[in-house]
Structures are given as structure tokens and as C-alpha cells.
Amino acid sequence: MQIFVKTATGKTITLEVEPSDTIENVKAKIQDKEGIPPDQQRLAFAGKQLEDGRTLSDYNIQKESTLHLALR
């Protein structure tokens, strides 16, 4: 499925993911596309910060959802 990640600079990244993917996997995909190390990424959805060990389906993130990326 496709999801979107909006960066602090307003850029939107499109990612191909599975509901079973962990947040860690998603951060690795962002690193592949943007070169941002996962340990510098903070992802949020619906106002909640997402934890590495959880999956997209844990957070009820569905196709075409938009996550927000902040850098630490």
C-alpha cells in the first residue's frame, strides 16, 4: 500500500509499505529515499509519536495515510 510522509520542510515522500511493516522498517525506507538516518527520525500520526517496534497496523495506519516526520 502507499503512504505519504510529510517532512518538516513541507516535502511529501511517497512510500510503498505493508500494514505489517514496523515503524523501524518505514524509517529505513525513508533513509533509502532521503538519506536521513533512522535514529534522527521521529514519526507521528494523528498526533501520536510512533514507536520503532510497533507496526503500521498497530496504529491503524491505512493506505494513503500521511505520517509526519520530524528530525531530532
Rank of each mutant, 00 (worst) to 15 (best):
G35L: 05
L69F: 03
E16K: 07
I13F: 11
E64H: 15
T12I: 15
T55Q: 09
E24H: 13
S20R: 10
V26S: 01
L15N: 00
D21H: 08
A28L: 13
K6Y: 09
V26Q: 00
D58N: 07
I3H: 00
N25K: 11
K63G: 14
D21I: 06
L69Q: 03
L56Q: 00
A70T: 11
D58W: 11
G47M: 04
Q41I: 10
I13L: 11
L56E: 00
G10A: 08
T9V: 12
P37D: 15
M1S: 03
E34C: 04
T12Q: 13
T66P: 02
D52N: 15
T22G: 04
D52H: 07
T7N: 11
E64M: 12
I3W: 00
L15P: 00
V5R: 00
I3Y: 01
F4R: 06
R42D: 08
K33E: 13
V17Q: 02
D52L: 05
I61E: 00
L15C: 03
R72V: 15
K11A: 08
S57H: 15
V5P: 00
E34N: 08
L43R: 00
G35P: 03
F45L: 06
G35E: 05
E18L: 13
P37T: 09
A28G: 14
I23E: 01
M1H: 05
P37Q: 08
K48D: 08
E51N: 09
T7K: 08
A44H: 15
R54K: 13
A44E: 15
L67I: 11
K63D: 15
K29E: 04
T55C: 04
I3R: 00
N60K: 08
V17Y: 05
T7P: 06
S65Q: 08
H68D: 10
Q49W: 15
Q49N: 12
R54D: 06
T55M: 11
D32H: 13
L50E: 00
V5Y: 02
I61G: 00
E64K: 10
A8T: 15
L15D: 00
R72P: 15
R54M: 12
I23Y: 02
E16R: 12
A46S: 12
P38D: 04
L15T: 02
A46Q: 11
E18A: 14
N25W: 11
E16D: 13
N60E: 02
G47E: 07
Q62Y: 10
E18Q: 13
H68N: 06
Q41P: 01
Q40H: 13
I23S: 02
Q31K: 11
F45T: 03
Q49P: 09
D39P: 07
R42I: 15
T66F: 06
G47L: 04
N25A: 12
E51K: 09
T12S: 08
T55D: 03
R42M: 14
K27V: 02
T12E: 06
E34A: 08
P38G: 09
I30T: 02
T9I: 09
L71G: 08
L69N: 01
L67Y: 01
Q2D: 12
L43Q: 00
N25C: 04
L43C: 01
F45A: 04
K29R: 08
V5T: 02
P38F: 15
K48I: 12
Q2P: 14
T9Y: 12
L69D: 01
G47C: 04
Y59T: 02
S65F: 08
F45W: 07
L67R: 01
R42L: 14
A28M: 09
G35T: 04
H68R: 06
Y59D: 02
G53F: 12
T12F: 14
D39H: 15
Q40T: 10
N60Q: 10
L69I: 05
R54P: 05
K27W: 02
E51R: 06
A28P: 01
I61F: 02
D39W: 13
Q31N: 14
I3K: 00
R42W: 07
R54F: 11
G10W: 05
T12N: 08
Q62L: 13
L43P: 01
G10C: 05
L71V: 13
N60Y: 08
A70V: 14
K48G: 07
F45N: 03
Q40E: 10
Q31R: 11
E51F: 06
D32W: 12
Q41H: 03
D21F: 09
E18K: 12
D32S: 14
Q31F: 14
T22V: 14
K33P: 02
D52F: 04
T14G: 06
L43N: 00
